[in-house]
Amino acid sequence: MWSTGALRAQLLTHLLDSGLAGPVATSREASLRSYRAFAARDPRVTIGLDPLGRWDERALLALMADRCGVSADPARVHGGDVIDPELTVRALDVFAERLAEAVGRRAPVLFGTGHPHRLLGFYADLADAVSAAGCPVLTPAQGRCVDITTRFGVRPLTLAYVRGVGLVRESEEAGEGAHSHSPLPVRVALQAAAEGGGPLPELVVGDHGWVCGAGQLGVEAIGLADTDDPALFVGAAEGQVSVAVPLDDGVPSDHYVPVTRYVLKRACLSP
């Protein structure tokens, strides 16, 4: 038997030791820059979300202080940012509850990440677990071209799935996935699922545009987000995103393994 209290205490220690929470690598400058861009409705930062309310910089800073634990002081403009590990664990508990609820009704689930170099293993292990529990893990639009607009022009990428997790690549032959904030991959996937007459996802699990793009279209979405990703937290505040978990999304991939174990234990998906 495992103790919930002991497991939680171990995770809190790991979050701080690994830099997933506590003082994180994301700079205060980067976070504030993202809040300014979101307030200006920059699509590179809204990443598929069309906010219902008016979010200026001050409102965003207050929200991120409440949901992540960053400093609420607008005069603090330099240095590293911070995530409250207690908020991370609380959000992970709700994340696990939503995953368990989907498993309980054998709901089709779609996984996707814009951070394949860091987070692929986290989502892939969750996909393996929900699949073993009887949930269909969907992979619509495999190999479909996704034209993503960047400041350098249109970047043609290919939608692929690795261990059931959606990502975009430079080509079908490319081994590694590309970093992306775009909501276009999940839009392409959802459109293909609808046009194919197959099951539609009842839950999307991921980050960046995968979560915001799905939530904006009315699909339940849960995911991870750093202090410079305000869109997921706005979506959660407005009810378009079910869960936004605050944690650093750029640490080495093996640092997420204890997080995976915690979620699977809390969702009753592991021994």
Rank of each mutant, 00 (worst) to 15 (best):
R36N: 03
L20Y: 05
P23A: 13
F38A: 03
S182I: 00
V154N: 00
D17H: 12
P199I: 07
D66W: 06
A194Q: 13
P230S: 01
E202M: 03
I47V: 15
G19I: 08
P183G: 11
H181K: 09
L49V: 01
G5F: 07
S71Y: 00
E176T: 14
S253K: 13
A194I: 04
R41T: 02
L11D: 05
V243F: 02
G177W: 10
F152R: 15
A107K: 01
V168M: 07
V263M: 03
T13S: 15
V186Y: 11
G48D: 07
A132L: 14
L120N: 11
V241D: 07
C68D: 11
G53I: 08
A127M: 09
V186N: 11
Q216T: 10
A96R: 07
G215Q: 05
D249A: 12
L203Y: 00
Y256Q: 04
G223H: 01
L99W: 08
H14I: 06
G69I: 12
V77P: 01
S270W: 09
R76G: 11
E29A: 14
H117E: 12
H115Q: 13
L49R: 01
D228L: 08
F122W: 06
L157A: 11
G134V: 11
L15R: 07
L224S: 01
Y161T: 08
R76C: 08
V186T: 04
V211P: 05
G164K: 01
H78P: 10
A72P: 13
H115F: 13
A21Q: 09
